[in-house]
């Protein structure tokens, strides 16, 4: 894949404000949250990823905005734009996820908890929270393709425009419900692995469908 540096830099710049805000919020949460970070029942994390992903995709993938339309009229073909939009989204997510993962996996979080709150659990945090950053990354890997797909579907010429929106709503509701389901708090590994595989398959399907539909997308700024 050839990377057009100018296009990638341009798209990353579009997402810079949301990335900076999200990075501060996410690192703040990861460092200062006194409770154990577990993927089950973490509403705040899911809410954060939903809002962050939505804002991020709005900045770079909404074809009804003048700034995004400007790119479509500027010499790039559809596949190039799609690849770079996804790559820029991945980099923007990485810019938020990597500091959070470093905070959780390094002694930083434990040190903050011990020093600031005298938290007795601080020594247990690192081993118990190892999987938490992976949960965040998995959620992003479904959310970002999903939200891009919703906008692309919305901009289709003739039919089914709102189906992407409803799919996104359904996914958000399902995620919150599954995250809160009592049996999952002690879920066996095979069940968790099944969810991971299902999420990755869904993500892959959304990426493929998004790529295909992006070629027909209408720019109506």
């Amino acid at each position: 894949m050839t990377i057009n540096r100018a296009l990638l830099v341009w798209q990353c710049r579009l997402m810079l404000p949301v990335t900076l805000v999200a990075m501060l919020v996410a690192v703040g949460y990861a460092a200062f949250e006194p409770g154990l970070l577990r993927w089950q029942k973490d509403f705040l994390a899911l809410l954060f990823i939903t809002i962050h992903g939505w804002w991020l995709v709005l900045s770079v993938g909404r074809p009804t905005s003048g700034g995004v339309a400007f790119l479509y009229g500027h010499g790039f073909d559809r596949d190039t734009l799609w690849k770079h939009t996804l790559l820029a989204s991945a980099l923007a997510v990485g810019a938020v996820w990597v500091p959070v993962a470093i905070c959780v996996w390094s002694p930083l979080r434990g040190a903050v908890q011990s020093w600031l709150y005298d938290n007795p659990e601080f020594s247990l945090m690192a081993p118990l929270e190892t999987s938490y950053p992976w949960f965040l990354l998995l959620a992003y890997s479904v959310w970002i393709p999903m939200l891009h797909y919703a906008w692309i579907r919305e901009a289709q010429p003739f039919r089914g425009g709102s189906s992407g929106r409803w799919l996104a709503v359904a996914l958000v509701v399902a995620s919150f419900t599954i995250g809160n389901a009592a049996p999952l708090r002690q879920a066996p590994p095979w069940m968790i692995n099944s969810f991971v595989v299902a999420a990755l398959v869904l993500s892959g399907m959304l990426l493929l469908a998004g790529r295909r539909l992006h070629r027909d997308l209408e720019v109506r700024a």
């Binding site: 003048g66 700034g67 339309a69 400007f70 479509y72 009229g73 500027h74 010499g75 790039f76 073909d77 720019v219 700024a221």
Partner: peptide, 13 residues
């Protein structure tokens, strides 16, 4: 596409 330049109202940076 790289050989075409366009200017449309509403397509603004």
């Amino acid at each position: 596409t790289s050989r075409v330049a366009c200017l449309f109202e509403g397509f603004v940076p």
